[in-house]
Amino acid sequence: MAVDSAKLIDIIKVIADKITENREYLTQLDSAIGDADHGINMSKGFRAVVEKISDMGEKDCGTILKTVGMTLVSTVGGASGPLYGTAFMRAGQAVAGKNELDFNDLVSLMEAALEGIKYRGKAERGEKTIVDALEPAVEALKLRREEGLETALRDAVEEAKKGMEYTKDIIARKGRASYLGERSLGHQDPGATSCYIMLEAMAARLLDGKKS
């Protein structure tokens, strides 16, 4: 794998498209256990991101990722803004100055993103948050690192999906849904869902052309 700045911008645009496609779906999930704005906030943020990075092809990958993070932070608001914003900013720091990313860079930036979210949100796995989708994905990526990009990435997406679905079975302990206590059971977490959607979009673009 070799992702240069143009390709990175391309991947981010695909992620943005997917978030926009799922605007209503994410909002609907949030209306069940939150305040019905997750899709609205996220798509607003990614619209701003696409505008910001479209002509950053000359910049290094770290700068691009940091710009994504800062843009999310200043446009999304609510809980997901600082969380995803921090994730992208940390990811950018992890690959600062690089004009091309390889598989190892991908693993480091994903690790950094996870750490950023956990630092910012102070959530552990099992609390019905983004972490429930992201952490298993990052672990799979590291675990399967030896088996190459494709296997590792497919496995990561698979684990993210499982984590996302698992959020239905647990009680929220963080974020707005936690006020619901028991009543949060049975509902899939919006943040875990947007995280899975983003990972899947990234993987699809990275594996483009590869047989699935």
């Binding site: 609510g78 809980a79 803004g81 600082p82 969380l83 921090t86 910012r120 949100g121 707005r176």
Partner: peptide
Amino acid sequence: TGDVMNFEM
């Protein structure tokens, strides 16, 4: 959660 994180940043 949102307020706390945004103010903290």
